[in-house]
Write a protein that binds this DNA or RNA. Sequence first.
DNA 1: GTCTATAAACAGATAGAC
DNA 2: GTCTATCTGTTTATAGAC
Lengths: 200, 200
Amino acid sequence: MKSKSVERDLSPEKTEAILDGAMQEFLEHGYAAARIDKIAVAAGVSKATIYRRFPDKESLFTGLMQQLACKKELFNSTQLQSAQGDVTAFLKSLANKMLNNVADDPQVLTFLRIIIGESGRFPELARAFVQNIEKPILEAMTQYLASHPELELPDPEVAARAFMGTLIHFVILRDVLHSGDIVPMERDRLVDQLVKLIIK
Amino acid sequence: MKSKSVERDLSPEKTEAILDGAMQEFLEHGYAAARIDKIAVAAGVSKATIYRRFPDKESLFTGLMQQLACKKELFNSTQLQSAQGDVTAFLKSLANKMLNNVADDPQVLTFLRIIIGESGRFPELARAFVQNIEKPILEAMTQYLASHPELELPDPEVAARAFMGTLIHFVILRDVLHSGDIVPMERDRLVDQLVKLIIK
DNA sequence: GTCTATAAACAGATAGAC
DNA sequence: GTCTATCTGTTTATAGAC
């Protein structure tokens, strides 16, 4: 009665190693081009050991990605931690934290590529990402903006979307699509003017 | 002296059929999971006929996608055709046209998935997309906003990015990531309030 | 120039030894 | 429970016939 569902006396260390290796391989090559063989090598186990815990390649992929889509740490480290200070300063610092978070971490970019790239074949994965990552951020932003009536925002929810959408679009162009030089935009300028646009 | 570079007396009809079949297959399955076999069947030719014009799978893929990334018709059918009427009405109609364009055409969504999903392995493809699609739209938007000084926009370029970013983010959440029900937002409401946010 | 048939390599999944 | 060796089906790419 101490085993959870299917897993039964399987070495947790190897399971962890497999998930690590799978993450590396899937993030680097995507689903279709990822090789079970490579995952086994990276994890330091045999393929049979992988197939003892995961029925097939697809299960390994979805299991891993669903797990990743819940790790909020990956994204919003600082989720509206302290709504102190004036609104302008707070929004700027929030935007900067979000941009730093992806700029520093290439894995976050790769993760975004996979989520969007595989959203046609793995819609549930995309939905889990939105449910666990995007939705909480949007709701917190809306809440924050709505709690400041002096801003006189006619629609805080749309304002939150504009804020997030502008930043994400910026990241997609600059970092995901490698086009920071094609459509150049100073990061500080974007943040400053975006905040002005929202709160004025 | 009438052949262009490598192509030499190859049936243009079959080349066209191959590109059509390749588009179907690549858009549906992505690069790695696409099968040359399927492309040949869809095009009504043999695999050898494909390999006579394209050295390998990768060339076929990049050639096709680069071509697609130039077909602006796919996207902004109406590119600021007539800047007539008041600014509010014009921006709303522009936003609606953009949203209609992707809502109606699942191929556009699939194309976006591929561009982003493969941007790690095919950075030049991503850059071609930005150069030919995103950049012209952003520049035209900036130009339009800047040509209306009565709006008193401190930074038309950032305003244009906010406008585009909000709409694209909306499309990504609702259509690309299949999450319109998780983070619901009435389309007309978003457009109306977004325009207000920009021009007021 | 195009097709049929095939080569050659590979990848997902498993049987059986330990 | 884990590994080695292998099976089975598949896939890119090409050689050779027409």
